[in-house]
Design a protein around this nucleic acid. Structure first.
Lengths: 198, 198
DNA sequence: CGTCTATTTGAATGTACTCAAAAGCGGTGG
DNA sequence: CCACCGCTTTTGAGTACATTCAAATAGACG
């Protein structure tokens, strides 16, 4: 069976084991959504209804501050989840936007479905515990970088840690993720001699 | 029964329900540890054996960079958990230190005990999922602050979000948490007119 | 009271930002 | 095929924010 769900089941299987029946239930709860470049998966002010799993393509979540400047919180490539967790958990107005940077296909799980999963297939408690644990570890590293490294050092770290990202994402979004201006990132790159190719 | 474990059981009960037997098992797995000010709960290089729950007092975790500068990752006051999650999960050498800022009493759960809990009392999967979820939300806010706000704005936000912290923790640690120098924090405070009292 | 550490103050420096303009890079249509 | 448009990246100059270094002051503890 060559289904659209193979990919996410393989992803789940990397962390926990599901019976065939559990797989069946899980995939029956998933929606699918396709977006073109520049379309929004979530707009600030709306309630975030889904956790989205990226099958294909690239998205980012970002916050627009009172001066109108965008700050990128996260990117998600293939096999990454993305959501506004705050909005999703409490079903309150989102503060962030989620936007497709390329044509994108995502699988979506809404909150009632997730809660049903938690009660009917408790191993998903474990799965999402592990997922959140890993997210927390990544966040920790990012915070440490932000409070201890210069813009240049943070950029170098990003290049080493997520080499594919720098290839696929416009520079200005990388800058807004690192917490620097696009102009400054360009200067950094000039200093480094454009080392993406090494 | 007026036990040392009342406090942590109340904390757990805020998120999940345990039977008396489950409470019994859980508390039997907990160790207790008391530290004086300036003593270390964890030293970089050692393996972090425990998740620690603060009953009383105040601790911080911090990283020392190659220049010898300390960067505070987290504080933990009463009813907060603290650990080096990376080191704890993988049982690898810790990169961070955890130090008592006041005399402290903590309850500790080691990894084998935690894993036993996960299998014998699966509701703890849920408990720690929620805990990590909340930690992740807090980290998200902190990252957003770091990439979008000035040092002054981050300090004001900290004062509003954790008013008790600024009272109880020496300023230089607040500075190292915010990612600024103690000198600069002092200047900020001079500008603001020392508004802790308002 | 004296010592140790934390905080404040001041001056010089450097890092990153703003503003402005130029150059590069697709895509689209004539 | 080339010209033009919109958007991203680069370059340059001036500015602001935050740092370093040094010294003075204030607080905590024995």
């Amino acid at each position: 069976m060559e289904s659209i769900h193979q990919q996410i089941l393989a992803h789940i299987a990397r962390h926990v084991s599901l019976t065939a029946a559990e797989q069946e239930l899980f995939t029956s709860l998933l929606g699918i959504r396709r977006l073109l470049r520049k379309q929004f998966l979530l707009q600030a002010g709306d309630i975030c209804r889904y956790e989205s799993y990226v099958l294909e393509g690239c998205v980012r979540s970002f916050f627009v501050d009172d001066k109108g400047v965008e700050h990128t919180l996260h990117f998600a490539l293939e096999d990454w989840w993305i959501t506004d967790l705050e909005s999703f958990l409490h079903q309150t107005a989102a503060q962030v936007n989620i936007e497709a940077l390329t044509p994108v296909t995502v699988l979506q799980l809404d909150k009632p479905s997730l809660e049903r999963l938690y009660t009917e297939v408790p191993v998903f408690e474990r799965f999402f515990r592990i997922l959140h644990q890993n997210a927390y570890l990544a966040q920790n590293r990012r915070i440490l970088n932000n409070i201890s490294l210069s813009g240049e050092a943070r950029y170098i770290d990003l290049l080493e840690r997520y080499p594919q990202l720098a290839q696929r994402v416009p520079q200005k979004y990388i800058a807004s993720y690192l917490g620097i201006t696009p102009v400054f990132l360009s200067q950094i790159r000039a200093r480094l001699g454009h080392r993406e190719g090494d």
